[in-house]
Design a protein around this nucleic acid. Structure first.
Lengths: 210, 210
DNA sequence: TAAATGTTGTGGCAAATGCCACATTTATAT
DNA sequence: ATATAAATGTGGCATTTGCCACAACATTTA
């Protein structure tokens, strides 16, 4: 298991846990479909390595990208309720390694007096809380009413994380437009204006506040 | 404790748990400030009864409503990372009853061999997963690029939940505009157009798909 | 019952945004 | 090294959306 999920768990404990929970480890190649969402099964997936994303397609063939996942992210029906009329599946963007846990098995009291159980669930709780943080951040940004405010809110967040005056955003401007939910050319225009007004300096993914 | 948090926990167990976790129960009157977010403390709040909301104010006095809470919702710094430059606090919208748990105490292994510990955390995990579901739904709706699509996505979700042809949305049109992150009069205009095009029928909060 | 407050509904106009087409640079694959 | 694809950057134009002001109706309070 990875560092996030095995916080405070020793190697011997780990082996007992694996015996107890029977987690499934799986590998996927970039482009592969990892899992299709169902209304029945409650799989808990945890990304160990690589990148994946959740996409939804409706009857008209319109598709929406709903979430992007990197290592330590949790996913599954439990966390993302599917919208009516969409088919959902998770696909690998890069080569991925993933752990699956079954919700019912994970959550039900352990037959063995298993001290690791509590630790696993508490780690899972922590990962889920982090997911909630990321979603809340995204919502706060989308709640901003103009492209300018969305962009500045995002940039200030990234700058605050790095602490540096000059910083680089962790995605392309194409992806940023998608994340901010705005048209890419409109985003470029806004960046141009901010530069003209002397509010920031930028070159491709690198930004500096003035 | 309430039905969500005490799933599968008997009354005797409950008393032992209360002794073990020392949760704080507090009541608030409508309008009161419940808690101010800090970067240090990690309180886990759970709404037992009533309604509350998280609001943020920046230096310019602009404020954003970031989340609305009802019973069974969890809140706290752990779940909602504050944006740089905003002050955050939770305020009661209606009279509220709230449980507080301290994260570190909740998450750390119990001194007593406490079987309830695992159950509490697993319930907390479940609540957090549900929060994540609600946030994901909201994000999916905001990801729609037009007012029409946002509105229809929301209405289809509500209709899917009730199963009825004619259904009532659980908030005012003022709040709906806020939730969809669009101007209220623009929302009204869009509803008018959808009616004119024969796509739906509506009167105030009541809608019917045709 | 009256007054005050909140919600729903409409219309005009200005501003912000999206859409499209294209040039240029950078990264990737063969 | 070259071809291909992906990302960045710009400009014009149409459309959507937001903003504002106001009327009608509903709900709560005095």
């Amino acid at each position: 298991m990875n560092i996030a999920l095995d916080r405070n768990i020793s190697k011997e404990s780990l082996n007992k846990m694996i015996a107890c929970f029977k987690p499934e480890f799986k590998d996927y190649k970039a482009g592969e479909t990892i899992i299709q969402f169902s209304y029945e099964i409650k799989n808990i997936g945890i990304i160990i390595k690589g990148k994946a994303r959740l996409v939804g397609i409706n009857a008209d063939g319109e598709y929406i990208i709903t979430e992007n996942y990197t290592s330590r992210d949790v996913f599954g029906e439990l966390f993302s309720f599917p919208l009516e009329g969409y088919e959902y599946y998770v696909e690998a963007v890069e080569d991925c390694q993933i752990i699956y846990l079954d919700y019912n098995h994970t959550i039900s009291p352990c037959d063995n007096v298993c001290p690791h159980h509590s630790q696993l669930i508490s780690n899972l709780f922590y990962l889920t809380a982090q997911k909630s943080q990321a979603l809340t951040l995204h919502l706060n940004i989308l709640n901003q009413h103009t492209i300018r405010k969305k962009l500045l809110t995002y940039l200030q967040y990234i700058q605050g994380k790095t602490g540096e005056d000059t910083f680089e955003i962790p995605m392309s401007l194409v992806s940023l437009a998608e994340y901010l939910c705005v048209d890419r050319s409109a985003l470029m225009r806004e960046i141009r204006l901010l530069k003209k007004e002397g509010i920031l300096e930028s070159n491709r993914r690198t930004f500096t506040f003035l």
